[in-house]
Simulated scan of single mutants.
Amino acid sequence: MRSLTIPYLSAGSDLSSADYLSALLQPLSMQEVGEQPWPSYAYKPDVKFSIAHTDEHILLAFKVREAEVRYVNTMPNSAVWEDSCVEFFISFDDSGYYNFEFNCIGTVLVGFGKDRNDRKLLPETLVKRVECFSFMNEAKGDNKWQLLVKIPVTVFMYHPVFKLDGKKCKANFYKCGDKLQQPHFLAWNNIETAEPDFHQPAFFGDIEFEAKVS
């Protein structure tokens, strides 16, 4: 079981700037989304992420290098998993987990529930609070893209009053592309199921949000 401590960052008021957000996350070590739970899907793109938190946000940076990019879905809560997609699933307690899914142009899907069959999509008004900044360098057979993500704690509608400081949670990070020419399903923490299924909270890793130093 993988574990990760998420550093606290003292951020200024300019989190709406992609340049500032990139500079804030740049010094952080990156983790690999490198587990390949289902070997029949042999293609393995290069995927890394870094994560941090502030008083009011979870911040993510994904860096991806893959042979093909697809970005068909443009509406909130649309089928982004069919595109070049990265995902972040997080559980604060036994009530369920949130699935945040992003395609390479920053289209966002967010749901909540206890398992694959118990999902409720969050209202678009909340989903639109999740800000993404996308950067792509497309080249035949060798595409590089980066996604910066800012998730405000106000998005966690089923957990309206809580602080990230010192909080211990469960989470996993993924890369997929269901409708790419080479479909693939990668995870940060390994999953032991017969068929591809990211909705497996039993296989989430341990994460802890670093407490703010007074």
Rank of each mutant, 00 (worst) to 15 (best):
M1I: 00
M1Q: 05
R2K: 09
S3E: 14
S3Q: 13
I6K: 06
I6M: 08
Y8M: 01
S10L: 09
A11S: 13
A11R: 03
S13H: 11
D14R: 13
S16V: 06
S17H: 11
D19F: 04
P27R: 05
L28Y: 04
Q31T: 13
G34L: 07
E35K: 14
E35A: 14
Q36I: 00
P37Q: 10
Y41E: 14
K44L: 05
K44H: 10
V47T: 12
K48F: 07
F49N: 06
F49R: 12
F49E: 09
I51R: 08
I51N: 01
I51P: 01
H53F: 08
H53R: 06
T54H: 05
E56R: 12
I58K: 08
K63S: 15
A67T: 13
E68D: 11
N73A: 14
P76M: 06
V80S: 02
C85F: 09
E87W: 08
S91F: 05
F92M: 05
F92D: 05
F92W: 02
G96P: 04
G96V: 01
Y98Q: 02
N99R: 02
F102Q: 05
F102V: 07
F102H: 08
G106W: 04
G106C: 08
T107L: 04
T107C: 14
G111F: 01
D118Q: 14
K120E: 13
L122T: 05
E124G: 00
E124K: 00
E124I: 05
T125F: 01
L126T: 06
K128E: 14
K128I: 00
V130I: 15
E131C: 11
F133N: 07
N137L: 09
E138S: 05
E138W: 08
A139W: 00
D142M: 04
N143T: 11
W145L: 12
W145R: 07
L147K: 06
L148I: 10
V149I: 15
K150M: 10
P152C: 10
T154D: 14
F156K: 02
M157I: 13
P160D: 01
P160E: 00
L164K: 07
G166Q: 01
K167P: 00
K168F: 02
C169T: 13
A171Q: 10
F173P: 06
G177Q: 13
D178N: 13
L180K: 11
L180G: 07
H184V: 09
H184K: 11
H184T: 15
F185K: 10
A187D: 10
N189P: 02
N189M: 04
E192G: 00
T193K: 15
T193E: 12
T193M: 11
A194I: 09
Q200P: 03
A202C: 03
A202D: 15
D206F: 07
D206T: 14
E208Y: 02
E210N: 06
A211V: 03
A211Q: 11
V213E: 15
S214D: 12
S214Q: 09
S214C: 06
